[in-house]
C-alpha cells in the first residue's frame, strides 16, 4: 500500500520563535483521494502545518515526502510554485483585478484553449460557471469560495490543502458546499487535508481525522 501514499510527513517540527515549537515530532501520511481533517483550537499551529506542506514556511526539522519526492533537504527546499499542491484559505484571496474565469485559469499550464476548457469544466463542477465573466467583488461569500476551490483544483494537483474553507459561510451553504467539494475530490481522486475548529466540517467531510494538541498530531476516530 506504500506506493499509494501521496504525502508522508515524518518527525516534523516548526516554530516562529527559536525557543518554542508549535509543531513537534509531527507524523502523518495520506493516500490518493484520501481526506484528512485536522481539528484544534485557534492559533495552535493547524494553518502553519498547511503552510509548511505547501512550501510557504520552512520546517526546523523533519521530512516531507510528496509523490515520492523529498520536498525539504538540508540546503534545498522545493519552493511552493514547484510543489504542485493546491491551497484554499478562509479569506478566499481571489485576484481582484481578474475575472472569475481568469482566476481559475491562472494556475493551469498549457495552451489557451486547454486553459479555457479546463477552467470552465471546474467552474461547472462547482456550479460557478454562470458567473465566469464576473469580477470577484460582484460575488457573494459562498460564490467566491466556490471559485477559490475551483481555482485550486483546476491545475489538477494530487493534494489540496483547505484552511478553514467553510468557516465564513452560513450553515446551509456550508453543508451544501462541503458535500459538493467532497464529491469533487473523490471524483478527481485528489487527496486533501482540511483544517478546521468545527467538528462538523471534519466528521461530515473527512475519511480520517486528527487533533493538534501540545504541538503533537494525534489521530482520532471520526
Amino acid at each position: 500500500m506504500k506506493e499509494q501514499e501521496v504525502l508522508t510527513i515524518s518527525d516534523l517540527s516548526f516554530g516562529y520563535e527559536k525557543s518554542r515549537d508549535i509543531l513537534s515530532g509531527v507524523n502523518l501520511s495520506l493516500k490518493e483521494g484520501e481526506i484528512l481533517g485536522i481539528l484544534g483550537a485557534s492559533g495552535i499551529g493547524k494553518s502553519s502545518l498547511l503552510r509548511i506542506i505547501s512550501g510557504l514556511e520552512v520546517p526546523k526539522e523533519g521530512e516531507i515526502l510528496f509523490e515520492g519526492r523529498l520536498l525539504n533537504q538540508k540546503n534545498l527546499i522545493i519552493p511552493p510554485n514547484k510543489r504542485g499542491v493546491g491551497l484554499v484559505v478562509q479569506e478566499k484571496a481571489l485576484f481582484p483585478h481578474l475575472t472569475v474565469l481568469e482566476n481559475v485559469k491562472f494556475g493551469i499550464k498549457g495552451a489557451r484553449s486547454k486553459k479555457n476548457d479546463q477552467a470552465t469544466y471546474f467552474l461547472r463542477l462547482l456550479k460557478a460557471e454562470k458567473f465566469k465573466n464576473s469580477m470577484p467583488n460582484k460575488l457573494s461569500g459562498g460564490e467566491q469560495q466556490r471559485v477559490a476551490i475551483a481555482r485550486a483544483l483546476a491545475p489538477q494537483p494530487k493534494l489540496i490543502l483547505l484552511d478553514e474553507p467553510f468557516s465564513s459561510l452560513d450553515m446551509n451553504l456550508r453543508a451544501e458546499l462541503r458535500l459538493e467539494t467532497r464529491q469533487l475530490l473523490k471524483r478527481t481522486n485528489t487527496a486533501c487535508i482540511i483544517v478546521s475548529h468545527d467538528l462538523d466540517d471534519v466528521s461530515s467531510f473527512c475519511d480520517k481525522a486528527a487533533r493538534l494538541e501540545n504541538a503533537q498530531l494525534k489521530e482520532i476516530s471520526t
Binding site: 512550501g55 519552493p79 514547484k82
Partner: peptide, 14 residues
C-alpha cells in the same frame, strides 16, 4: 492580502 501571494505561489507562479 498576503494570502493572495500564498495562493499565487501555490498555483505554480514564480
Amino acid at each position: 492580502d498576503s494570502a493572495v501571494d500564498d495562493i499565487s505561489l501555490s498555483l505554480g507562479t514564480n
